[in-house]
Nucleic acid binder design. Structure first.
Length: 279
DNA sequence: AGCATCACCTGGCTGC
DNA sequence: TGCAGCCAGGTGATGC
């Protein structure tokens, strides 16, 4: 499940293969991957355009085109982008739903088994050339930074669990179920703690943990889990899964206090934590 | 308005 | 061994 570190890794890959190149073809074969507009409209508006910039906010990828439109891609649960240099030599993987052809003969393929991911093009952009709906997102910890005062202001007065707030893209952009657990664990705060019960020191620890963990996960090119099959643009696995301290470790020992990692449910989502050292 | 819950979707795993 | 049924979760809609 791609979150900020995985999407940022893919963005860096796309930056190398797309910027300055012209999109020579776009084939939409999946029925659900393009749903905000007719697939034919997307193809017509995008083909022939040159990519001038590849940006990211939270889990959204934004390909800024030379006519000021933006091609937006969200991977959601299982979406994968793959760069293929020699398309005829490599058969398309099952669940390939969109194929973008480039002027150098290479392709970028969108593979998405669960079909939650989506592509759409918009010309509703801000002064900085990025989609206007990005205004609805909270600060991106990597792009905008996430200081303790900013986090305090974003969660002020909230009665929800801190984990619910951290994974709410309107509060902070880019954190999903996995990194929220890792951040709460590193901050020694239970994911179930109500936002309005957190003191200054705890908020400071959460903000610091978010910055550190997301940065470290990007260095290791994201997390590839056993079931989900996240790979980067070149098809390589990430390496951060070996650093997980909470997520997916129910019943295993806590590496900090020797307690046991528990699996809880918060709003029908799993949450992993240690009651021994998170409070 | 703010918060909780549900629908969407299917590969892979569990258990009988 | 085969297969039914469950689980995973980001986002937007719906309900309270």
């Amino acid at each position: 499940m791609p979150e900020l570190p995985e999407v940022e890794t893919v963005r860096r890959g796309l930056d190398g293969v797309l910027v300055g190149r012209t999109i020579t073809g776009l084939e939409v074969t999946g029925r659900r991957s393009v749903r905000r507009q007719r697939p034919g409209e997307l193809v017509e508006r995008v083909v022939g355009r040159r990519v001038v910039l590849v940006e990211r906010r939270g889990k959204y990828l934004a390909l800024v085109l030379d006519d000021d439109q933006v091609l937006v891609i969200h991977l959601r649960m299982s979406g994968q982008l793959l760069s293929v240099k020699d398309p005829h030599a490599r058969p398309r993987a099952p669940h390939t739903h969109v194929v973008m052809g480039l002027e150098d003969g290479s392709e970028v393929r969108f593979v998405d088994a669960r079909t939650f991911g989506e592509w759409f093009v918009t010309d509703d952009v801000r002064d900085d050339g990025l989609p206007s709906f990005f205004d609805q997102l909270g600060p991106d910890p990597l792009v905008d930074g996430l200081t303790a005062p900013v986090l305090r202001e974003r969660i002020a007065g909230k009665r929800t669990a801190i984990k619910v707030a951290l994974t709410d893209q309107h509060v902070v952009a880019g954190i999903g179920n996995l990194y929220a657990d890792e951040i709460c664990y590193a901050a020694r705060v239970l994911p179930t703690r109500r936002c309005d019960t957190l003191d200054e020191e705890e908020i400071r620890r959460i903000a610091a943990a978010a910055r550190r963990i997301l940065r470290e996960a990007i260095v290791l090119r994201g997390s590839s889990l056993r079931d989900a099959r996240y790979r980067d643009l070149m098809g390589d696995l990430g390496g951060y899964q070996t650093r997980h301290r909470a997520y997916g470790r129910a019943g295993e020992g806590c590496r900090r206090c020797g307690g046991t990692i528990e699996r809880l449910e918060i709003g029908a989502r799993s949450a992993y934590c240690c009651r021994g050292c998170q409070h």
